[in-house]
C-alpha cells in the first residue's frame, strides 16, 4: 500500500505542515514574492539561484525544502527514484503576463522571464537543486482533482519510482495556493493511505484551516 507521508501548505497568509505547526505567518501582509523571500531567509538556505526563480518555482522550492526537513528519509532514495507531479489550472499565467509586459510595454522581451513561461520549469528547478533525475509530469486541470493525483501517484509508484512529490500550485494575481505532499511506496503502517479520499480530505482540511487574510 502506498502512503501519503507528509504535506505542507503555502498561502499568502502562512505556511503550515502536517505536523500542525504554523511555520511562517505573514503578519506583515507581504506580497507573495516578498513573503517567499522572507521565508527563504529564515530557513537560512544558501542557494542564490532562488532569487532568480519566478514565484511558482520559489513556492515549489520552499515546499520541497520543508518536506525534506521533516522527512530525512528522502535523502536515502537513489537519484532517480523520486518522481515529480505538479499541477494547477493557470499554467504560468503570472509570469506570462510579466513577459508580455516586457515586450509590449517595455519594448525589451526578457529572456529570464521567457524561460519561466512554462510551468514545468519549477520541476527543473527542483531537479537541479536536489540532483533528481527521475520522472516528471506537469498537468493543467480545470480544478484540484484528488482522483488524478491518487491515480497517477499509485501508477508511477508501481514501477517507475519509489516516492513521488506532488503539488497543486497556483499563483495568480492576489491568490497563492500551494499544497505539496510526499507519497511513498514504503511508508509505515501509521501513515495515511494514498487514496482519492485521503487526499481530498487533507486538501479540504487545509483549505478550511486557512485563516482569513489580515491584509
Amino acid at each position: 500500500m502506498n502512503h501519503l507521508s507528509s504535506y505542507c501548505h503555502i498561502s499568502t497568509k502562512e505556511i503550515v505542515t502536517d505536523k500542525g505547526a504554523l511555520l511562517f505567518d505573514n503578519t506583515e501582509g507581504l506580497e507573495v514574492n516578498d513573503f517567499l523571500k522572507t521565508v527563504y531567509k529564515k530557513l537560512a538556505i544558501d542557494y542564490p539561484k532562488f532569487y532568480k526563480m519566478d514565484s511558482l518555482s520559489k513556492a515549489a522550492f520552499l515546499g520541497v525544502e520543508l518536506l525534506k526537513k521533516e522527512n530525512a528519509a528522502l535523502a536515502e532514495y537513489a537519484d532517480d527514484e523520486i518522481a515529480l507531479l505538479f499541477a494547477n489550472s493557470n499554467a504560468s499565467e503570472d509570469t506570462d503576463k510579466k513577459f508580455v509586459n516586457s515586450y509590449a510595454e517595455e519594448h525589451a522581451p526578457s529572456p529570464s522571464l521567457f524561460v519561466y513561461t512554462l510551468p514545468s520549469i519549477l520541476m527543473g528547478e527542483l531537479a537541479i537543486r536536489n540532483k533528481w533525475y527521475g520522472e516528471s509530469l506537469f498537468v493543467i486541470l480545470q480544478k484540484f482533482d484528488a482522483a488524478f493525483f491518487a491515480d497517477y501517484c499509485n501508477m508511477i509508484l508501481l514501477r517507475n519510482a519509489k516516492a513521488c512529490i506532488c503539488g497543486w500550485i497556483e499563483i495568480t494575481e492576489g491568490k497563492t495556493e500551494a499544497f505539496i505532499f510526499l507519497a511513498e511506496k514504503n511508508g509505515n503502517e501509521n501513515n495515511t493511505p494514498l487514496t482519492k479520499q485521503t487526499i481530498e480530505k487533507i486538501y479540504k482540511t487545509i483549505m478550511k484551516q486557512s485563516r482569513p487574510s489580515k491584509v
Binding site: 542564490p48 539561484k49 529572456p111
Partner: peptide, 17 residues
C-alpha cells in the same frame, strides 16, 4: 557572481534598455 547563460542574455537586454 554565479551568473549563467540566461544572465548573459539579460545583460544584452540591459545594455539596450
Amino acid at each position: 557572481l554565479g551568473l549563467d547563460s540566461i544572465d548573459a542574455l539579460e545583460l544584452i537586454v540591459l545594455l539596450e534598455k
